[in-house]
Design a protein around this nucleic acid. Structure first.
Lengths: 212, 212
DNA sequence: TTTTGTTTCAACCATTTGGTTAAAACAAAA
DNA sequence: TTTTGTTTTAACCAAATGGTTGAAACAAAA
């Protein structure tokens, strides 16, 4: 019998349960018992496979980040003219977030509590990888092809429009007085129009001076 | 001697310490001992003034919400033409968030964990109060004065651009490779240009068909 | 000064929670 | 069938944490 069977079905069930619970309750809000119940196994199985809560959490946390950040960053390093890159970036970014809507708020809360945790396994890597993209924007801006804002502000504008509706869902649903299904349709609509909208927001149409 | 001396300085110190700790660690992440230490009082004082952790948290949570939401909603109910209202809204909104940068992430995390908590003390009130504003947008949109998007999407666009840079600070600082001070300047810059930017994003300049 | 009510604290308690252990059930090979 | 290693479990443990208590310090009034 193998010692490492890749991952046993039990281990996988535990991980998935842990992911769900940690992402909705956070590290301290999560109870090992709750994870065990959700995975339909005995509590001591958690420790058999993952030793400690901390280690189990760390795995969930790192995989959550890895599932989102590198994908997004890599979108910015393709060899494409700015306008096409922006559209492509927006479409893929929205796909990724839509498939993992709980990750951003989870990661932000945990980073906010403990900014050092992430530094242990990534850091400057990300910061450096987006420089070429920022430079591309700066270049186009200097030619008058984009809205007249610093590249960083443009990037944050785009990210804001795409992520916040997912992160802010709990409060936005209250403010807009929408039930789950209505808000899902709201997000669907958003995913549809945003890529074009983002491009239009960044690129200045030729022969126009834009309206900002 | 009075029984209710408004609030004693000790009680205030406790509340402020609790606010800081709860807002950065969340309900479950916060330790009563840590709150006591930060307030420079003995732990049993917490219970003397607030009975339980739950009650202390509830006060912090409710006051956090009350400090932000009603202010913002009321901005949308002033009697002003749309363009002026948008500018005024953006300016004030940014002021409020800048003065309370930790509240949004805190409230969102707690709402996400327990959406019922808020329902006990507000709910439809907010949803109803913004209807007039949404209608005002719809009216202007039908006259072709705004960008061609549903009113809800426009509102969410505005909120996204303003709040996310504060909520997303931990990750944005990593992505942009900025230290605290640089990011503060980044936010300053943002607060300066956003009101005009938001107005330009929503209102279609007369005699133009916009670029979306 | 005495009294009376408030504010503060050190020591203690009960519960929760992460974590351990030893044995039983199980499956695969010999 | 016996053996051997793995998977699962119930019962238990120690530490952390929210919460209590009774007495001391203090301040204001009598």
């Amino acid at each position: 019998m193998e010692h490492e069977q890749d991952t046993s079905p039990t281990e996988l069930k535990i991980f998935e349960a842990a992911r769900d619970v940690f992402q909705s309750k956070g590290l301290e809000g999560a109870r090992m018992q709750e994870i065990a119940d959700k995975a339909e196994i005995n509590k001591s199985m958690l420790h058999y496979y993952y030793r400690t809560k901390e280690k189990l959490f760390e795995k969930v946390y790192q995989l959550s980040i890895i599932k989102v950040i590198p994908q997004i960053v890599s979108l910015l390093n393709e060899e494409l003219p700015l306008e096409q890159k922006l559209r492509h970036f927006s479409e893929k970014y929205l796909e990724i977030i839509r498939a993992n809507p709980d990750i951003p708020l989870f990661v932000l809360h945990e980073m906010n509590k403990n900014p050092n945790r992430i530094k242990t396994f990534m850091l400057n890597e990300i910061g450096k990888k987006i420089q070429p993209f920022l430079n591309q924007i700066r270049e186009e801006r200097s030619k008058g092809n984009t809205v007249d804002l610093p590249a960083e502000q443009i990037l944050v504008n785009m990210m804001s429009l795409m992520v916040f509706p997912f992160i802010g869902r709990p409060i936005l649903q209250v403010i807009l007085n929408q039930d789950e299904e209505t808000y899902n349709r709201f997000l669907d609509e958003r995913v549809r129009f945003l890529p074009d909208y983002v491009v239009g927001m960044v690129m200045k149409p030729k022969g126009s001076d834009g309206n900002l």
